[in-house]
Write a protein that binds this DNA or RNA. Structure first.
Length: 448
RNA sequence: GGCCCCAUCGUCUAGCCUGGUCUAGGACAACAGAUUUUCGAUCUGUGAACUGGGGUUCAAAUCCCCAUGGGGUCACCA
């Protein structure tokens, strides 16, 4: 454990919190918690054009949803303008910075970059060397009175006592400028740790065209926050063994920068889905129920007639079979609507077969006579039927599944039928029979 | 283009610092088989990588150099 650790996450509120930012925040948080240090949040809103309050809110919401609680802040740089001005003027007074007017007539303060060699002792990369004569005198205070990123960042990190700067390695090239500032002020130098970026699934920089890239999108698609955190933690860090599912306390206990990677990682939705499925399985049904309820409601499903008992059976039946709440909804829409979508391939493969219509008619009459409509009775009577007719049970089960769910893939057919209820089962069977027996038309989306 | 960073299965990674135990381990995905009323569920299994070239060394995935490839950055954006 390193003593007196203080780290920060310092996003700029120009958009939602994306996956890469979330990972940076997570590493800082984990580092702070592991070392019993302080995690601070600072909003770098020095771009008057692009900063928005909605973005700030979205970032805060995302952090909370992920469970990344901060101990200090959020501080807003826009509220510290006099501080930056004062520091900038100090440099001017000492001859380390100067006023400069550009071609457009804007007057700003520039920092005099000293020529020489600057070394960064990066905790992840080791020594990185820069020739500072290649770096121009950069603006530290803009014409609008706002500081630039490099300046505000250094002033704040120093004033706020940040000991370790953990950030994306796209900031490596900013570091010599910031070190120049630290030296000019005589500030105590922090440690730097530049973690690799997260790339899109095709290996290029993460952007909107990669689909979901923001934390809120994953939340809205029905992912569990702990699963996302677990997945993100493993992107660029490893506990050192073969463990894939790691609890937050365990992550905190094992997190060290020494085990952080240098290589950028490609995001992989498929693995995230698998991981989320693992977390779903490990979550007790009782906890899942309210989450399913609210996700379905938000998605426009009419849950008003759903009883607690039914919902409980429903979640139990699908517990091992869904990866995200959105996935669950996609799999089970046929329960909640009278207009089901038939999968054409499934219809052709199982319904449009010789003798299926007759078989379904027999099943229909058996089912219509069942009074106690539960899976046990259904199984007993339907199996008895196929035995009587001398056909394998799957000859009946498959067409029935398609007729009832519209798909060839579903949970157990009896459990599904029980949950769906007698009336709807009969309606859907009837519809299938009619389509098969009375017309040769292809079933598509059929209103029941 | 200048400067900087990086380089192990398709993907995430272990191993690298402290060369030998690596005929390179795990996970996701893929594929095959099993099971089952179906499956995107479950179980079992298979294929799959040290970017290339030089060194150093008895010995290199591990250390050094070069090449190549990928990424980042060069704003009064952050």
């Amino acid at each position: 454990m390193i003593s007196h650790v203080k780290v920060r996450f310092a996003p700029s509120p120009t958009g939602y919190l994306h996956i890469g930012g979330a990972r940076t925040a997570l590493f800082n948080w984990l580092f702070a918690r592991h070392n019993k240090g302080v995690f601070l949040l600072r909003i770098e809103d020095t771009d008057q054009q692009r900063s928005t309050e909605e973005a700030t809110q979205a970032i805060l919401d995302s952090m909370k949803w992920l469970g990344l609680d901060w101990d200090e802040g959020p501080y807003f740089q826009s509220q510290r303008l006099p501080v930056y001005r004062q520091y900038a003027e100090k440099l001017v007074a000492e001859g380390k910075a100067f006023y400069d007017t550009d071609a457009e007539g804007r007057k700003a303060i520039r920092f005099k970059m000293l020529d020489g060699v600057t070394e960064i002792n990066d905790l992840i990369h080791g020594t990185i060397t820069f020739d500072t004569s290649l770096i121009e005198d950069f603006v530290i205070l803009k014409a609008d009175g706002f500081p630039t990123y490099n300046f505000a960042c250094v002033v704040d990190d120093a004033e706020m006592g940040i000991t370790h700067i953990i950030r994306g390695d796209d900031h490596i090239s900013n570091t010599p400028k910031q070190i120049g500032l630290y030296k000019a002020f005589g500030f105590k130098m922090p440690e730097f740790a530049h973690i690799p970026m997260i790339l899109g699934e095709d290996g290029s920089r993460l952007s909107k065209r990669h689909g979901a890239t923001s934390v809120t999108e994953y939340r809205d698609k029905g992912y569990l926050p702990h699963a996302l955190v677990n997945f993100l933690a493993l992107l660029g860090w490893s506990p050192g063994n073969d463990q894939e599912i790691i609890s937050i306390p365990e992550m905190i206990e094992k997190f060290t920068l020494k085990r952080a990677n240098k290589t950028s990682a490609q995001f992989n939705n498929i693995k995230l889905d698998w991981m989320n499925g693992q977390y779903i399985k490990n979550t007790p049904v009782e906890q899942l129920i309210p989450q399913v309820q609210s996700f379905f409601e938000k998605s426009g499903v009419d849950m008003s007639k759903i009883t607690p008992g039914w919902l409980s059976d429903f979640v139990k039946l699908y517990h091992e079979r869904f990866k995200t709440f959105q996935d669950l909804l996609n799999q089970t829409r046929f329960f909640f609507t009278d207009t089901i979508e038939y999968d054409l391939a499934a219809v052709n493969k199982f319904l449009k077969k010789e003798g299926v219509g007759e078989l379904l008619k027999e099943a229909y009459s058996v089912i219509s006579r069942i009074d106690t409509f539960d899976k046990k009775t259904l199984e007993d009577s339907l199996r008895a039927l196929t035995e009587k007719l001398g056909v394998g049970f799957s000859r009946l089960a498959q067409p029935m599944r398609v007729a009832i769910t519209g798909k060839s893939v579903s949970a157990g057919v009896f459990e599904t039928m029980e949950l769906l209820g007698k009336e709807k089962n009969l309606k859907r069977l009837d519809c299938a029979i009619k389509n098969l027996c009375e017309t040769s038309a292809v079933m598509r989306s059929t209103a029941l």
